[in-house]
Each structure stands twice: as structure tokens, then as C-alpha cells.
């Protein structure tokens, strides 16, 4: 099992061994309303939440050529909220018995000086993007429906351009390592969204080229 380098491990344990189970898909803008409608029906009864986040992906290059990656996120709609620093491990596709992608996941809240801090540590920003969309919850499951926009000028989140006419849909659950049963709940939930969208475990390494 991969773990973040000891140097950046947070001192407080607790969430250190959490795994993120993930299914991904997308929905065309034409069918977005139908999907949101269905999610409102399927998910926990709550006021639908929207968000607009700016994500900056930082690299720390090691001598082996494999950079260490950290993701810093801030909510554009809540400028005073803390930043969100996230480490994501290598995704494991696993076998047919596990229905979701699994990756190590460490979430930390951070102060607004996070970019400067990361820079001082030797991290460099590799790329950034803006996501904006809706969050739904059903029990431990989280459903995020969002569009992804390029940032035209570095750091300027006013001037962005949509990637495509589709919204990214992610169904995720945070659970301690080894609790593969959560992936079955995720699969049955994903089944209920067919044929509108297909949520699958997509191996990102295959999308590289």
C-alpha cells in the first residue's frame, strides 16, 4: 500500500488511512437537469448545494523522476473559508469484485498562506482549473456534478473557459482501508442513474494519451 512520504504525514492520525472509493462519469449539458432532478429524488433530503472551486495542483519533483503531488483547493464563493489540501494516492483498479476505483486519500484544512508555504517547500504549481457545480449526499456517499474550466491566465479565475459541453459526475465514499463493501452500495446507486449516465471505474492512466 502506498503512503505519502513521512515528511508530509500529518501528525494527527485518524484520517491517515482513509481510502477514497470512486466512480466517475459525465453528463451532457442537455441532460443535466434530468440528472439533477433524479439526484434530488435519490439523495438525502437536503437543500441542494452548489460550489465553485479553484484547484491548484502542485508537484514536488524527486530524483527518481516521480513527482509528489498535492492538490490545493479553495472555494471561490467563500473566500474566507480555509483552503483544502489533499493528497491522492495511486488509484487501484482492482478486480471485478470491487466495483469502484480505490485510492489513498488525505484531507487537511489549511490557512490562506498555503500556496506560499508549498512554494517555500519546493512545490511548484503544475496546472490549475476551476470546477463549479452541485453536491449531493446519500448517507456516506457523495455525488459531485460539476463542469471543469481552464484558467486562461495563471491565477485569474475570472477568465475561464469550459472544457466541454459535459459535466463531470463523481460518486465517492471515504472509508477506512479494506472496507470494499461500500463499493457495492455505490454500484447499486450507480445502477439507479442508468441509462441517464454510466458511472464507471475509469483508470486515469489509460486516459493519459
Amino acid at each position: 500500500m502506498e503512503a505519502p512520504p513521512v515528511t508530509v504525514m500529518p501528525v494527527t492520525g485518524g484520517t491517515i488511512n482513509m481510502m477514497e472509493y470512486l466512480l466517475q462519469g459525465s453528463v451532457l449539458d442537455l441532460a443535466l437537469e434530468s440528472l439533477l432532478h433524479r439526484l434530488r429524488g435519490l439523495c438525502d433530503n437536503m437543500e441542494p448545494e452548489t460550489f465553485t472551486d479553484h484547484e491548484l495542483v502542485y508537484l514536488l519533483k524527486g530524483q527518481q523522476g516521480n513527482p509528489f503531488i498535492l492538490r490545493a483547493r479553495r472555494a471561490l464563493s467563500h473566500p474566507n473559508a480555509p483552503w483544502h489540501l489533499r493528497y491522492l494516492g495511486q488509484p487501484e483498479v482492482g478486480d471485478k469484485n470491487r466495483y469502484a476505483l480505490v485510492r489513498n486519500c488525505v484531507d487537511v484544512a489549511a490557512s490562506h498562506s498555503l500556496p506560499e508555504f508549498l512554494n517555500e517547500m519546493g512545490f511548484r504549481m503544475d496546472h490549475e482549473f476551476v470546477t463549479s457545480g452541485h453536491i449531493f449526499r446519500k448517507g456516506a456517499m457523495k455525488v459531485v456534478v460539476c463542469n471543469v474550466s481552464r484558467v486562461q491566465l495563471p491565477g485569474n479565475t475570472e477568465n475561464t473557459e469550459r472544457m466541454s459541453n459535459s459535466h463531470l459526475v463523481e460518486l465517492s465514499v471515504l472509508a477506512p482501508a479494506g472496507q470494499d463493501t461500500v463499493s457495492e452500495d455505490m454500484r447499486s446507486f450507480a445502477e439507479q442513474l442508468k441509462p441517464l449516465i454510466h458511472l464507471e471505474k475509469i483508470d486515469p492512466s489509460k486516459q493519459r494519451h
Binding site: G25, V57, V148, L168
Partner: peptide, 19 residues
């Protein structure tokens, strides 16, 4: 589109690189 979005969020494919 799904693949493009997943690749963009996972490792910034199709997003402008920062200089």
C-alpha cells in the same frame, strides 16, 4: 467527454500548464 474530464481532473490533461 467523460475521459477528457477525468484526465483533466486527474493530471491536468488539456489544461494549460502554468509557467
Amino acid at each position: 467527454d467523460t475521459n477528457a474530464l477525468v484526465a483533466a481532473v486527474a493530471f491536468g490533461k488539456g489544461l494549460s500548464k502554468c509557467r
